[in-house]
Design a protein around this nucleic acid. Structure first.
Lengths: 199, 199
DNA sequence: CGCCGACCGACCGAAACGGTCGGTCCACCG
DNA sequence: CGGTGGACCGACCGTTTCGGTCGGTCGGCG
């Protein structure tokens, strides 16, 4: 494990595995699936990680580290448009380089819809925290919808960009789309907005 | 199929199954998974559909019908902001009522990232068509990114809203988020009645 | 009462599962 | 030059899960 070469290979494995675990769940992702995705045999993959469980934990730690990187890079700013913008920039960079990880950040949302119970250590919480959203807080539904929507857009765009091999060209477009989804094109300085809207 | 009661049950099954098939793929979704999701035993589910394959085809037809509904509802308008707005409204209605189907519309994008080959009859093409996007056309990357991003936001928001049981409250917020992601600034400062258009 | 459709528990052969083992290949070192 | 060790694989093992079947229970209805 001393060589950076080895570490680089492992990181590639972790990115691919993250996408599979995120979308299919732990139980539904076989070692063979991951091995195929990274171009190894099952035995070859288990040569890098001693067991499926160890691989899963490494993936979780990997995603957690990336999520925390975003959170730390943004911690010095107070909540507001500037922080949002920086958070989006950092997240897009992470997403375009590691698309599987972003899928993992959204996995809890999609899995809960199936009624599946999951008990992961929630690295996604770091991302929501970076945007100042508490999932259990109903006080500001617009903010919640905006942030979740922007993350959804980012997740699928990162995947599509990676697949189409357009990551560098699309990057500014992805950033703009996410910022627009957040509602940041207009000055949002109305926290006590009487938004009775329509009944 | 005589009673509407039966049809209603089947539609609920199809919605749940669509979400599972979309996110996990056909092979990775077991009959037992669908049965659990709809609260039936495996034998009970296979009483409604003669085989897993028949269930899958029914799900595809269901998604196709919903996708086509959006396309038909929008066909009378020329491409442009007005058509985009109507398409989003229709799609949001479909999505909030049938969140699993929207996940299916996006499945090709996420699956291609895994290198999986899929050969489905692509109901999602109807949706892209409604927004005037050709996936193989590089001429207007911004439009592609915008549309794909808006669909991603919609997909995860529909799931989240369904899970949090906030579909009616969140609907206008979801519409606004998707439109913003598309890059259409809402005419909120116009002298006419911008906000009440969607009621 | 008898009938029928909805639904279930138990079961089947086959396939896939996580993991092990022995071996091949090859870069590198003496 | 032989040899040493890591990366990697094919084949295999015992177990679990797969799609699907079968016989049966239950309740509504004529």
């Amino acid at each position: 494990m001393a060589r950076p070469f080895r570490q680089q290979i492992d990181e590639g494995i972790l990115d691919r595995a993250a996408g599979l675990f995120a979308r299919r769940g732990y139980a539904k992702t076989s070692v063979q699936d991951v091995a195929d995705a990274v171009g190894l045999s099952k035995a070859g993959l288990l040569h890098h990680f001693p067991s499926k469980d160890a691989l899963h934990e490494a993936v979780l730690a990997h995603a957690d580290a990336l999520g925390r990187r975003v959170l730390d890079g943004v911690a010095h700013l107070p909540p507001g448009p500037a922080r949002d913008r920086l958070a989006v920039e950092l997240l897009v960079d992470v997403a375009l380089g590691h698309p599987g990880v972003v899928a993992m950040l959204l996995a809890p949302v999609t899995e809960l819809a199936d009624g599946v119970v999951h008990e992961t250590g929630s690295p996604e919480h770091a991302v929501l925290e970076a945007f100042g959203v508490d999932p259990d807080d109903d006080a500001d539904p617009e903010r919640t919808v905006r942030v979740v929507g922007a993350l959804g857009a980012l997740a699928v765009l990162a995947l599509a960009a990676h697949e189409a091999d357009r990551t560098t060209e699309w990057r500014p477009l992805v950033v703009a789309t996410c910022l627009d989804a957040l509602g940041h094109r207009r000055p949002r300085t109305l926290p006590s907005h009487p938004q009775q809207a329509e009944a």
